[in-house]
């Protein structure tokens, strides 16, 4: 029974003010009970922790080790320690830098569009006085649909002679084969698929803005735009940062859409595409691993910068809440 007293304080916070001994009750009851609670906690978490570490931490360490090896699957006998040769090869290769640039462009542009569009969508879903349930249901379709399926839909739509969208373009246009236009279409596919997710996260943030506050601002003379920029957005900041952080890291991993839309041809490949191609087309595990490690470092840097610069609080950490 000491177990339930431990978390009681958290679950009944709204009552603690009036409730007599709530502060005391919140404290652990007995040291043996406390120990048992710790044991149970560790026991329950162990499977999750073990599997997560086994499938991520060990492979990434292994990837680091591989990245220092010459390891071509076509010539397994040639396997040998290569020092930083793989990294040198990647970092001096124009393919890497082009892929990196393409990835950054896709990430920044699509997240920016998603944010604006997602905010608009969130406002519509939050505020609409007609068809609330309907809009909330249909926006889940892009979220739920398989990326590959959506990518095919876009690919067919933009393929000349086949697609309804291509039919609207001037004769002879083949948007999926030009670098700039293809990247734009990749961004479009990304934006379509993930804006609803962004919108849902932002809508959750919107729900945290008290109506009374907006009414007060209105009485104080703030117009709709001012209410949005001065009240709603600042109050939503934590939700916005979480949404942006997650989407940025997610966009940086872009793979499915490119694979289906362009196969990375005509200079449209992302870093994930590059890593994949090195492994399954060039069969070079050493180079592929070096790319893996570099992507990992890039993602870690982005996350670090986000948290440092914007003070994005990690969801789940107690500090970020309320």
């Amino acid at each position: 029974m000491s177990i339930d007293s431990g978390a009681l304080a958290a679950s009944t916070t709204q009552q603690t003010e009036q409730q007599g001994g709530a502060h005391r009750k919140g404290k652990p009851a007995l040291s043996e009970g406390k120990k048992a609670e710790r044991r149970l906690g560790l026991l329950l978490c162990a499977p999750a922790a073990i599997i997560m570490v086994a499938v991520t931490a060990y492979p990434i360490v292994y990837a680091i080790w591989l990245s220092f090896q010459r390891y071509d699957l076509r010539f397994p006998a040639d396997r040998a320690f290569a020092g930083f040769a793989n990294y040198a090869a990647v970092l001096t290769s124009e393919y890497w830098w082009r892929a990196f640039l393409v990835t950054m462009i896709i990430t920044i542009v699509s997240v920016a569009i998603e944010f604006v569009l997602g905010l608009a969508l969130a406002l519509v879903m939050h505020r609409t006085i007609v068809g609330r349930g309907l809009t909330r249901t249909v926006v889940l379709i892009p979220y739920g649909i398989v990326t590959v399926v959506a990518a095919f839909s876009w690919q067919f739509a933009w393929t000349p002679d086949k697609g309804y969208l291509a039919a609207m373009l001037p004769e002879g246009a083949a948007p999926l084969t030009g670098q700039v236009s293809a990247i734009l279409l990749i961004i479009l596919a990304e934006v379509w698929k993930t804006t609803p997710f962004m919108a849902l996260l932002l809508m959750a943030g919107l729900a945290l803005v008290p109506d009374d506050l907006l009414k007060a601002a209105q009485v104080d003379g703030a117009g709709p735009w001012q209410r949005l920029t001065r009240i709603i957005l600042p109050m939503m900041k934590p939700a916005i940062l979480v949404a942006l952080l997650f989407r940025t890291l997610d966009a940086f991993r872009v793979f499915d859409n490119i694979y289906i839309l362009t196969q990375g041809s005509n200079g449209t490949g992302s870093v994930s595409m590059l890593g994949y191609d090195n492994l399954f087309k060039a069969f070079n595990l050493g180079i592929g691993s070096a790319i893996s490690v570099l992507i990992f470092i890039a993602v870690a840097l982005i996350a670090f910068l986000f948290i440092k610069i914007f003070g994005a609080a990690a969801p789940g950490s107690d500090e970020g809440k309320r």
């Binding site: 499938v55 492979p59 990837a63 890593g275 492994l279 595990l285 893996s292 490690v293 890039a298 996350a303």
Partner: peptide, 14 residues
């Protein structure tokens, strides 16, 4: 937040 592609090479080998 983990980039899944980073796991593809090592998991493939393992």
């Amino acid at each position: 937040m983990f980039p899944q592609i980073s796991l593809v090479s090592p998991l493939f080998d393992i």
